[in-house]
Nucleic acid binder design. Structure first.
Length: 721
DNA sequence: GTAGGGTTAG
């Protein structure tokens, strides 16, 4: 029987007293296929007795009995064992060798392999490394184990020691061990060390390359990865399915000088050429790359071309739609998955994306249905799902429901807190958001990079300038979070909105890194609110250079010129927009009634339905003119048109049409919930305030930035947005 | 021996 060759015995010099006792049992290690056995004390003493009397046959019988008796022998978890003595032998009587922890290592010929392994498993890594130093011929298995334990123990210094010893013994040139070393250094958080191992490895198998690629991809060093990928191709080592996934990932994480999307397409071509177009991992990664670059149609063609799909590929495609402002498509695909791909059961990742899509659409009823499904599937205990639900309820205008999800959580991470902070922020409850932020810290959770974006954003929506400045100052000094581009953008927004444009400009000037488009965008947005032409020109000059294809920036500048009645400037900005072949994003508002979505676009349409809505609006606005002396804000229409025509354009704004539609198609007393893809226009804001009072209706509008709750002629934003 | 999709902001 195989077990006999793995007999474990204590040498003649070991006394039972030197064993570690635990209750009535002695724990010792037996290396039978790496399983550990727990010996009963009496039985152990019996073994010892047989041994000391030389009754080898009896001993043999005993061991066999032990290994076959589940009552006596039972497996114990690796961590709980106490390592003691171990030796394997085929020649039983002659090899009763004692290897207790105090035993002296034997010099040379690989005799210490077992001892090193034993010490590793017993948790004495330092001593294992020391024994390795005295062992000129350690086996590959022993070295691998040592490397493994260095990573396990999260000890970089031990890892470096082992590495040094392998270099001394020339073993670092073994491609297998080099791979393990690279992986170890990656897991220990030192990719630089991993690179060094790679540089020093002469024989680079595909495993060696892949190990380094994995490390580089995971820490976002995509540019280096792709350079090396090029080198690999020229050295004649063939890529495998892992190489392709890492190279693809690199395109997403790299800050390449060349177009990363093109690089991705190039790798796509390699994949096809080498026949990996049916590999589910490679193709799912490729799909994700296209998704991250916003190439929805490419992603979709990869997806539909996949011969085999599983729930990951379905989820990746759903995520692609959810993240690229196509939430309807995301939901449609989800239904399709449920109906067509019965073997692909959605998991928590799928549901996170579906919940996100519901939030984007502000589809509250659908969101509740999805929430019910999540509960039924038992996926609600998963943190990202909960966080997504909190945000979804918030984005549907239901802070209380979001708060309830949060309150029912047993454990919360920083993301759950951030989600809660953000929903209060987007509803304009700045003080409450700060209070939650402070609560979080009080509970011992350190604020993250994003915590500060959310809380600063909340201050900005609520006009809490001093509070925001205080938080911004404290983020680095107190919480050691280094302010990034987004935080500067928040500060510029906070100060700019509050008409402290000089201070906002000073924040930009004090930045250590080059201000990016988000920062200038915030400034331009503030210039729009406060009609500052001069600063707007500075900001837009930068923006046109940094993101020449963002039509929104041109439109903002044109708006500012129009407000200042600088019509020739308006014209030239529009020409610039046209010359760059860009189009203004049309305003779109929608309303969900009985789980159906009705959307309206601000274009001049003459359908009968729209005419009915216009008629209602004209009636309301006439009333408003009489009661409140309302004057349409025609100056925000920057077409060179007559007043009457401008008024007609204003009347056709998508949010007004949606409000009118809501008035007609919902019950009295029901809240009208509208969502808009852009910022709410000033005229619509004024009109909606009036309608809320005149029609005695609560109207909840979510625009691209925040919520407006109109009640009795007043908006929750306090006209500050 | 290594692998694919995820939560929070503006």
């Amino acid at each position: 029987m195989e077990c006999l060759y793995l007999l474990i015995i204590v040498g003649p010099d070991s006394r039972p007293g030197s064993l570690r006792l635990s209750g009535s049992s002695i724990v010792m290690e037996v290396s039978v296929s790496h399983k550990l056995l727990l010996f009963n004390l009496e039985f152990f003493l019996l073994l010892l007795l047989y041994h000391s009397f030389g009754y080898i046959c009896a001993l043999r019988y005993c061991v066999m009995w032990v290994l076959q008796s589940p009552q006596i022998v039972r497996q114990v978890p690796l961590q709980s064992h106490l390592c003691y003595t171990c030796h394997a032998s085929s020649r039983l009587p002659a090899s009763f060798v004692s290897l207790n922890p105090s035993a002296k290592p034997v010099k040379g010929d690989g005799a210490n392999n077992q001892l090193i392994q034993s010490l590793c498993r017993g948790g004495d890594l330092k001593q294992a490394i020391q024994v390795l130093g005295n062992e000129p011929n350690p086996s590959q298995q022993t070295c691998e184990l040592l490397i493994y334990y260095c990573a396990q123990k999260n000890s970089l210094s031990d890892g470096i020691d082992v590495h040094r010893q392998l270099v001394d013994g020339g073993l670092d040139q073994d491609p297998f061990l080099a791979t393990k070393l690279i992986n170890m250094y990656y897991e220990l958080g030192s990719v630089d060390h991993a690179c060094k191992v790679f540089d020093e490895t002469r024989e680079r198998t595909v495993y060696v390359w892949n190990a380094l690629f994995r490390a580089l991809a995971m820490v976002g060093r995509g540019k280096e990865l792709l350079d090396l990928y090029g080198q690999m191709n020229s050295t004649g080592v063939s890529s495998d399915r892992f190489t392709y996934t890492y190279a693809l990932k690199a395109c997403v994480v790299s800050e390449l000088s060349v177009c990363p999307l093109r690089k991705g397409m190039e790798i796509h071509a390699h994949i096809l050429r080498h026949g990996y177009e049916a590999n589910i991992h490679v193709m799912t990664t490729l799909l994700d790359v296209y998704a991250k670059f916003g190439r929805v149609s490419y992603a979709n063609s990869v997806f539909s071309g996949m011969p085999v799909k599983n729930f990951v590929s379905w989820s990746a495609m759903i995520a692609c739609y959810a993240k690229n402002e196509m939430p309807m498509k995301a939901l449609e695909l989800f239904w399709q998955m449920m109906l067509e791909a019965r073997e692909s059961v959605p998991n928590s990742v799928t549901m996170v994306n579906v919940v996100q899509a519901c939030g984007a659409l502000a589809a509250l009823e659908l969101g509740k249905l999805i929430h019910a499904y999540i509960l039924r599937r038992g996926l609600d205990s998963i943190l990202p799902v909960r966080s997504a639900l909190i945000t979804m309820y918030g984005r549907c205008g239901e802070i209380e429901l979001g708060q309830r999800v949060f309150d029912n959580m047993n454990n919360r991470d920083v993301v759950s807190w951030n989600s809660l902070i953000s929903i209060y922020g987007m509803h304009g409850f700045g003080k409450k958001a700060i209070q939650i932020f402070e609560n979080m810290i009080h509970q011992g959770i350190s604020p993250s990079y994003i915590s500060f974006i959310t809380v600063l954003g909340a201050c900005s929506h609520a006009g809490l300038v001093e509070e925001g400045k205080f938080l911004f100052k404290s983020m680095h000094s107190r919480y050691r979070v280094h302010p990034g581009m987004e935080h500067y953008a928040c500060m510029v927004d906070l100060l700019g909105r509050a008409n402290r444009l000089d201070e906002a400009m000073k924040v930009i000037q004090d930045m250590r890194s080059e201000p990016g488009p988000t920062v200038w965008g915030s400034l331009l947005g503030s210039c729009r609110i406060h009609c500052n032409v001069e600063l707007a020109e500075t900001a837009s000059t930068m923006l046109f250079e940094l993101e020449p294809n963002n039509a929104g920036n041109y439109v903002l500048l044109a708006d500012i010129y129009a407000e200042a009645k600088m019509w020739s400037h308006v014209k030239s900005v529009k020409k610039l927009l046209e010359s760059r072949d860009l189009q203004k994003i049309p305003g779109c508002s929608w309303i969900v009634i009985k789980r159906k979505i009705y959307s309206f676009v601000s274009v001049d349409e003459n359908s009968i339905e729209i005419e009915a809505l216009r008629a209602l609006l004209i009636k309301l606005l006439t009333e408003m003119k009489e009661q409140q002396g309302y004057v349409p804000l025609t100056n925000i229409v920057h077409y060179d048109l007559g007043e009457e025509e401008k008024e007609r354009i204003l009347l056709g704004h998508s949010e007004k049409l949606a409000v009118a539609f809501g008035l007609i198609n919902t019950e009295k007393g029901e809240i009208i919930r509208i969502t808009k893809n852009l910022r709410l226009c000033e005229d619509c804001h004024t009109v909606t305030k009036f309608i809320s009072k005149f029609a005695n209706r609560e109207i909840l509008v979510r625009d691209v930035n925040r919520f407006h709750r109109f009640r009795d002629g007043v908006c929750s934003c306090g006209d500050y947005w």
